[in-house]
Amino acid sequence: MRAFLLLTAAAVAATLAPSRAGAQEVGRSPLELVEYWNGVYDAAYRRYEAAAAEFRVLEENWNRLIDERLQQVESNPARAERILGEILSLSTERTIAQGQVRVETEEWEQVGDSFIGALDNYLEILNNTIRGTPLGDSLDESISLYNFWHERLEEVERQLAPNLLLVLEPMPEVVARDDDTAEDLERKATLLENRALRDSAGVVEIEEKIATDRRRLERDRSTADLSARIRRFGDMTIPVVPTTEGGPEIVGDTTAADRTQTPEQRIELMEAYRDEMIARVELLLERARELRAEAARRRM
C-alpha cells in the first residue's frame, strides 16, 4: 500500500510538473535549444542510470533470497520463514525502486525525444547553411559543428534504442501468506497464469522477429555467396582494363545508426532473451501450480 501511494505521488508530481519544453523554447536560438536539451538530457540519463543501478542491486538480493528460501523450505522451515520475512521487507523497497526506474525511464525517454527533435531541427538548419556557404573558415566551422552534433545525435539514439527491447519485466511478487485463504491463493495462481500467458505471447512475437531476421540474413548471404564464388576463381575478372579493384565499401551513410552489433549478434541476443522468457513462463506456471496445491491443502 505504501509503495502504491509513493508511486501515485511520483506520477502525480511528474504530471503536474511544468512543461520544460514549453517554458524553455521561447526566445532561444536553435543552437541554444540544443545546448539546453543536451544538459537536460544528460541529467535525465544520469538519474535513470542511478535508479536502474539501485533497482538492479535490490533485484539481485531479492532473487537471491527467493532462491535461498526455496532451498531451505524443506530442510529448515524456520530459516525459510525468516528469509520470507526478509523478502517481504525487501519487496516494498524493491517495488518503490522499480517504480522509480519506470518514472525515470519515462522522463529520460521524453527528454530524449525532445532533444532529438531539437537536434534534427538544428542539423537541418546547419545542413542548409553548409549548402549555401562558400569555401572558407565559415564553412569549416559549420561542418565541424554539424559533425559534432550529428555524432551526439547518434549517441543519443544508441542510448535510447536498446531500451525498446530485450529487457524482461521483473518477476511478479506473488507469494502465499499465512493468512491467505484458499480463494486468495487461487486468485494469485490465476494472476501468475495470466502473466505466463502474456509472456508466452511475447515469446511468439520474438520468435517471429528472429525468423524475419534469419530470413533476411540468409538472403543477404545468398547474394554474397554468389559474389564470393565468382570472385574466388576469377570468373568475373577479364583484365580488359588493368584495374586496381577490390576496394572497400564506401563508408559514409551519415543517416544510418552506428551499429556495433552484427546481424548474427542481434539474433543471438534475441534468442537468449527468448530462452530467458520461456524459462520465466515455466517458472510462473510452476509457482501457480504450487499456489493451487497450497489452496487445495488449505481447503481440506
Binding site: 549548402r131 561542418i143 554539424y146 577490390g246 564506401i250
Partner: peptide
C-alpha cells in the same frame, strides 16, 4: 592496401 577516409558533408552526403 587501401586507405579510405570518408566524412559527412551533410545528413545525406559524404565525401571520401
Amino acid at each position: 592496401v587501401v586507405a579510405n577516409y570518408s566524412r559527412a558533408l551533410a545528413t545525406d552526403m559524404a565525401f571520401y
